[in-house]
């Protein structure tokens, strides 16, 4: 489940500045959170690219007897169809991570741009955009995602589009809110006084200074995307079997779990859980560093 981001509390504690100065002084590799996040994200990205290639078995064909517990031959055991769980777990980022990263990047770019325009040029357009994204945000996310994917066809492109559509409003809101603060700052007025046109001010000055929230959000959104993909596949509205995908693996093994066959769902679950934590940690660490510089 991806719980909506809590609205940040305005007016930070005055002492956080003191603490921040100290954090800044530390080298990045002393920041446990950052290192943990970076390692997990690094592994996830690596597996997305090479997971299938380094897997000991073909993840989509039965390679042994069904329901073998973890052993030296099958590290994570095999599932009811005799597929190797380890090979499937490390091949899955190919779908889960790629999909989530693409959707996060697409919605990040789109949302940041729309948010910039909506924040900088206030008026009818801005009002309209905000109402639309209000409506989208009031939607039950998971149901909307199911509708979008199930009704447009369960393939990777449609999943990416659906996720992008769902996550763009987050970036619109974040960027617009930041733009609204930035445009009140004196450097914007100074840029105008220097002779910049509105568009130049928006692109050259306001945009680079309004990117931070989106960058922080980006990493979290990848985590969200992985969860949503897994969830959709879990209820049968996402990736089609026998593709290696974490949610699908958990769904397929759910009936076996109550019979004691724990390995088929434990490992993909840990993979999802850890990956999401990794992306969240990275985003958290970046946020803390940005706040101090």
């Amino acid at each position: 489940m991806t719980i909506p981001q809590s609205p940040p509390v305005k007016g930070e504690h005055p002492l956080e500045n003191l603490a921040d100065k100290k954090i800044k002084a530390r080298r990045w590799y002393h920041d446990k959170l950052l290192v943990t996040g970076a390692i997990i994200v690094g592994i996830a990205l690596f597996l997305a690219a090479f997971g299938e290639a380094i897997a000991p078995y073909d993840p989509t064909v039965p390679v042994g007897p069904p329901s073998v517990p973890p052993s030296t031959t099958y590290w994570f055991g095999t599932d009811t169809s005799g597929l190797d769980v380890f090979s499937r777990v490390i091949s899955a980022p190919r779908i889960d991570v790629t999909l989530a990263v693409s959707a996060a990047v697409l919605s990040g770019i789109l949302g940041t741009f729309i948010g910039l325009m909506a924040g900088f040029y206030r008026g009818v357009f801005s009002g309209f955009i905000m109402r639309v994204s209000d409506v989208l945000q009031a939607f039950p996310v998971f149901i909307l995602a199911m509708v979008l994917v199930a009704l447009s066809g369960r393939n990777l492109t449609n999943l990416i589009f659906a996720l992008t559509f769902l996550y763009t409003p987050i970036f619109i809101r974040l960027t617009r809110a930041e733009v609204l603060t930035q445009r009140e700052r004196a450097y914007v007025e100074a840029a105008r006084a220097a002779g910049n046109s509105d568009l130049k001010i928006a692109i050259k000055h306001v945009l680079p200074n309004s990117l931070t929230p989106s960058l922080i959000q980006l990493s979290v959104t990848v985590g969200f995307g992985i969860l949503l993909t897994a969830g959709l596949s879990f209820v049968g509205a996402g990736v089609r079997p026998p593709n290696p995908e974490w949610g699908l693996m958990i769904a397929n093994s759910a009936p076996q779990l109550v019979l004691g066959e724990w390995w088929t769902s434990l490992f993909p679950g840990i993979a999802v859980s850890l990956t999401v934590v990794g992306f969240a940690a990275l985003s958290n660490a970046i946020e803390r560093r940005v706040a101090t510089s």
Binding site: A190, A191, N196, H205, P208
Partner: peptide
């Protein structure tokens, strides 16, 4: 007027705020 601005310039009150931080 945008072109004319080179002839009239300004310094604001809050120096940090009036410089693009990046």
């Amino acid at each position: 007027f945008r072109e004319f601005r080179s002839k009239i310039q300004v310094v604001f009150q809050d120096p940090f705020d009036s410089l693009n931080p990046r």
